[in-house]
Amino acid sequence: MRNKYKLSVLFLGLLLGIIKPMIAQEDWKSLVSLDSLNTSGNTSATFKTTRLINGQSVETVKKHTLDFRVAHRFGNESLGIHSLYGLDAASDIRLALEYGISDRLTIGFSRSRLAENLEGLIKYRLLIQKENGAMPLSVTLFANSVITSVMDYTATADYAGDYAIFAHRMSYTYQVLIARKFSRIFSFQIMPSLVHRNFITNPSDKNDIYSLGAGGRLKFSKRSAIVVDYFYNINPSNSTRSAGSGITYYNPLGIGWEIETGGHVFTIMFSNAAGLIENEFIPNTTDSWRKRGFKFSFDISRNFKL
């Protein structure tokens, strides 16, 4: 009995003697863990570029980088074979220079073919999502002001014209972009928006159009993703006009394939909107997907580090 007890103490001692250093050996190796090394923890690349399809994304241009953007939107697919399904037409063309003053602040200027819109824009990244969950969302504020510089053909003997007063040419967009990168491959964004137009052609239209946009990006390979965005107009011009006023307004829906090559981002897409800036595509989309009113379109972004 006593011997048995002695043996078991000895055995336990030996066992501990063997196990303990094994544990300790593994212990010292894990003294530096990955968790203790990560610092900034900002979620990167919620979206690959500063645009979704029609709308803005929460991304801003990186510090001291110039983003040169060219977008071309062709005509309606319904134009048929004699217009190569819209490819002979150009609904809008936009050239833009957007510059990152800091990683959070972007300013930009663009010129569009449609209504010869000249746009000045400012974008500020207010909040950045953190990987550790301390900040669950990214929030970016966007505003632009646009001068519609198209020639005024509306003047007659009795009427000074739509743009007789310069202020009539001005319109503005204000947006709060709220996004979350849910996983390595999926990000989602909502975009409460307000477009204010100083001048409206139909007196029953509203100067202010409120819209709620939503969009997402789903990565399906290392360099490409499917991107979708949609704007639901809360008070479209249809709602205030009497029936049969001639034009029906639709909510803009865009879907596209985004390809990143390192420095360039190409997006090829379809959208029912004609215009390429918020001030046009939110209030003035008059084509419907259901009536083959969608247009082929592409967008190229090239970044230059200055």
Binding site: V9, G17, K20, Q25
Partner: peptide, 18 residues
């Protein structure tokens, strides 16, 4: 018995990383 406990303690301590 005392000796055994000493042995036990010695063995248990050996090998712990200094």
């Amino acid at each position: 018995m005392k000796n055994l406990i000493v042995i036990f303690l010695v063995i248990a301590t050996i090998g712990t990383v200094n």
